[in-house]
């Protein structure tokens, strides 16, 4: 009898231990993923740079040599320019990158995804982007004053169709 009680309490003990371990480690210890007093600037866009070379109009002789079904008057190279991007915070460079076009023939979009943790507060933000090797300077620039609160996610996106940088 005593032996039986001992056995069952032993089993109870092990079951208790088992579910305690499960209960505890399924939510603890907590983990600090991001400092509570900071904000996060996410830079992310996907933008296809302009063609590397300017499109060219074929001459009449050139067209003559081609089979009739391939006589397209304008030829454009497929390869795209890399996209140059810069992010400045209060006049200081935070991030600079030259983003290569995707794809084996380098004809895809240039993409970026970067995160920057910054202390909450007010900043002067300047972003600049160049998407053509044929343009010497940045062809998109945007500057703004932002105030970020702790925990805020501030997104810097880019969309050429809507006129350039999008801050959210």
């Amino acid at each position: 009898m005593l032996k039986k009680i001992m056995r069952y309490s032993g089993q109870g003990l092990f079951y208790g231990l088992f579910v305690s371990v499960i209960g505890y480690f399924s939510v603890a210890p907590a983990y600090v993923h991001f400092p509570a007093d900071q904000a996060l600037i996410k830079v992310s866009f996907s933008h296809a740079g302009q063609p590397l070379e300017e499109c060219r109009v074929r001459t009449a002789e050139e067209l003559e040599k081609l089979p009739p079904n391939m006589r397209v008057p304008v030829v454009c190279g497929r390869e795209r320019s890399p996209v140059k991007f810069e992010l400045e915070l209060d006049g200081e460079l935070l991030y600079r990158a030259e983003l290569p076009p995707a794809g084996l023939s380098r004809d895809g979009a240039s993409t970026v995804y970067q995160r920057f943790a910054v202390p909450a507060g007010r900043y002067r933000l300047r972003t600049r982007l160049n998407d053509s090797v044929r343009v010497p300077d940045f062809n998109y620039t945007q500057e703004t004053d932002v105030t970020v609160v702790p925990g805020q996610v501030f997104v810097v996106d880019f969309n050429a169709h809507t006129g350039g940088f999008v801050f959210k």
Partner: peptide
């Protein structure tokens, strides 16, 4: 044993997701 644990210590969510703010403290499994 698992049912007792479930009744006494139910699994809870950790607040609704909100991608406009960054997750600071998590309690991972």
């Amino acid at each position: 044993a698992l049912t007792v644990l479930s009744a006494l210590y139910p699994a809870l969510s950790q607040g609704p997701a909100d991608l406009d703010t960054v997750v600071s403290v998590v309690r991972p499994d």
